[in-house]
Amino acid sequence: MKGVRYYPGFLPLTILCLVVLYAPLAVVAVYSFNGSASITEWGGFSLRWYTDVFTGPEAVRFGQAAWNSLTIALIAATTATVIATAAALAMLRAGPFRGRQASFALINLPLMVPEIVIAVATLIFFSTIGLTTGYLTILLAHITFCIPFAYLPIAARLEGVEGTYEQAARDLYATRAQAFRLILLPLLMPGVISGWLLAFIISLDDFIITNFVKGAGMETLPTAIFGSVKQGIKPNIMAISTLMLLVSVLFVTAAYLINRKGRQAPATPGKTT
């Protein structure tokens, strides 16, 4: 008999899930090597679109846009995750307090407002207070709408972590900071990683809001490519997308290697087996 972790059908569903996620990307990756400019016909294997990305007339623009996108997503996701973690501690570790419901509504507000409304309202707001639109305004907008995406997984995780561990640590004269850093944070980590990842991809993907609050000439990858995708994807866009996938894979590999090195230390608590 198989263990209690096993459920028949869960593995096939996971595989189905991955197939659906990756099939459209396979199309993108394959056609990025297409010698022809059209998606409807195959013109033989070619690297011309990759050459185009790096040396073509729009190379500088795309490079700058990719850089902006990645840095904004990194900063926004990290900031939002820190803010959301703090908020989750207050919401779930401090017992009931006045304004808890209001805080909950507030945290989720960015999720509830349709993007185009946020976009128009934020632009009007920024121009009313005289904030020049540019990198910083994009960043501020991104941090704001990333918060609920970071918060919900973290809070969901925190709800499942009993206070007993920290209490035990406190009983052993750990300071509050030590109890958090050594006990709660490692226990919370899967939630924090999930929240950060969601915030990161949400920021990386945003078009509507960014397009409104960005200054003239300040591009992120979505705003730089949107036009040439809407009329049917150009092969150079497919090459850029494939490169982004490559960057993400490198990023993941690096994180994995660093993480494995760190694992020489004793296993973190919470791996209930």
């Binding site: 820190v82 803010i83 959301a84 703090a86 908020a87 501690l89 207050a90 919401m91 779930l92 570790r93 401090a94 017992g95 307090f97 805080s103 507030l106 945290i107 507000l109 960015p110 407002v113 946020i118 934020t122 707001f125 501020l140 907008a141 941090i143 704001t144 709408f145 918060i147 009993e162 206070g163 007993t164 920290e166 209490q167 406190r170 509050r176 109890a179 709660l184």
Partner: peptide, 27 residues
């Protein structure tokens, strides 16, 4: 164990301030 046992009760204000500030102003 009540939440105050882990010592966060007195920190509600500072912990929620960034959320209130960021979402309060920009949303």
């Amino acid at each position: 164990p009540s939440a105050s046992d882990t010592g966060y009760r007195s920190l509600i204000g500072p912990l929620l301030l960034p959320t209130w500030a960021v979402i309060g102003i920009f949303m």
